[in-house]
């Protein structure tokens, strides 16, 4: 059984007096299996948050089905087995972090002792021990994000749905959250998250889905979606100390893009055989090769390609 399953899901909003219709999600289908980290990617306005809101029971689909942990989206029993961090977490800002977690614990049906233990664990886990009983309104964005992660984990969920979990965090905080997501997966949990930070998605995801203008363009393991073909080669080199200017000038005449950087001379070419020939020419003239970097398709390139195709 899939943890999340979406079949031909559609959502049309009707707005204003003119009853203008906007199709936010146009018949998307995908599955998320147990123990995966699934990244749901897409440009702004692509339909990511609408899909997540349907899965969380916040809005109702116009057509199609969405099931969470084997039950229709919004089912209370299924919600008891999931934790959700909304985008730009809006919490009760008059509460302190322990009070917020206590409220969530009560809703999950935890008794007083279990709530107290879990609150202590989570506050320490997300690094909010120093915040004490300060109200959430005095928290920075990063601290709010941490409080949001803690409340999402309060019910020890099987499925964790995170909408932009790394936004607002400093580099250390991002690393901590990434580690936390890996820990969740290692503990057998399933993580479904939505992000526009592609570097994080590349690092974290087992599978991704790319949604553009309400349509799912690609879904699958990153390794299958990204082309394994070498798309370009970058050679970092240095001319010999003797006759450096002449060698540099001669080699720059060859095929490829050339530039001088702080790391040394750099040559880039889309033709790998031209790269090999360039390396041989550098060595032949007494130069030094510092690095040869083959460049394959990145998630960012795939994403931009899909987004541009959607625009076309």
């Amino acid at each position: 059984m899939s943890i999340l399953e979406v079949q031909d899901l559609r959502k049309t909003f009707t707005r204003g007096l003119s009853r203008r219709k906007t199709e936010a999600v146009r018949g998307i289908s995908f599955r998320v299996e147990k123990g995966q980290i699934f990244g749901f990617l897409g440009p702004n306005g692509a339909g990511k948050t609408t899909t997540i809101k349907i899965l969380m029971g916040l809005i109702f689909p116009t057509a199609g089905t969405a099931s969470v942990l084997g039950a229709p989206a919004g089912d209370r029993e299924a919600k008891a087995r999931l934790g959700y961090l909304p985008e730009n977490p809006y919490f009760y800002d008059y509460l302190s972090a322990p009070e917020l977690l206590d409220m969530v614990g009560r809703i999950y049906g935890l008794d007083r002792a279990a709530r107290r233990r879990r609150i202590g664990e989570l506050i320490e886990r997300v690094g909010l021990g120093h915040a004490g009983k300060r109200p959430l309104r005095s928290f920075s964005k990063g601290m709010l994000q941490r409080a949001g992660l803690a409340q999402a984990l309060m019910g020890d969920p099987e499925l964790v749905v995170l909408d932009e979990p790394l936004s607002g965090l400093d580099p250390l905080g991002r690393k901590e959250v990434r580690d936390l997501i890996f820990e969740l997966r290692d503990a057998g949990k399933t993580v479904f998250f939505c992000t526009h930070i592609l570097a994080d998605a590349s690092m974290l995801c087992d599978r991704v889905g790319i949604i553009v203008k309400g349509e799912l363009r690609d879904v699958g393991p990153l390794g299958e979606l990204l082309s394994p073909k070498v798309q370009s080669v970058e050679v970092v080199w240095a001319p010999p100390a003797a006759d450096a200017d002449a060698v540099r000038a001669a080699l720059r005449e060859r095929e490829g893009e050339h530039e001088t950087t702080s790391e040394g001379e750099v040559m880039r070419t889309r033709d790998p055989s031209a790269g090999h020939a360039f390396v041989a020419a550098v060595v032949e003239r007494g130069g030094v090769i510092h690095a040869v970097n083959p460049h394959r398709q990145s998630l960012e390139e795939l994403f931009v390609h899909e987004a541009l195709e959607g625009d076309a």
């Binding site: 809101k53 969380m56 029971g57 916040l58 209370r76 029993e77 919600k79 008891a80 999931l82 959700y84 909304p86 730009n88 977490p89 809006y90 919490f91 009760y92 969530v104 809703i107 999950y108 049906g109 409340q151 019910g155 749905v161």
Partner: peptide, 11 residues
């Protein structure tokens, strides 16, 4: 938008 936080909870 606190409703986005509370409605997905098991209630």
């Amino acid at each position: 938008k606190t409703v986005f936080f509370v409605i997905p909870k098991p209630l």
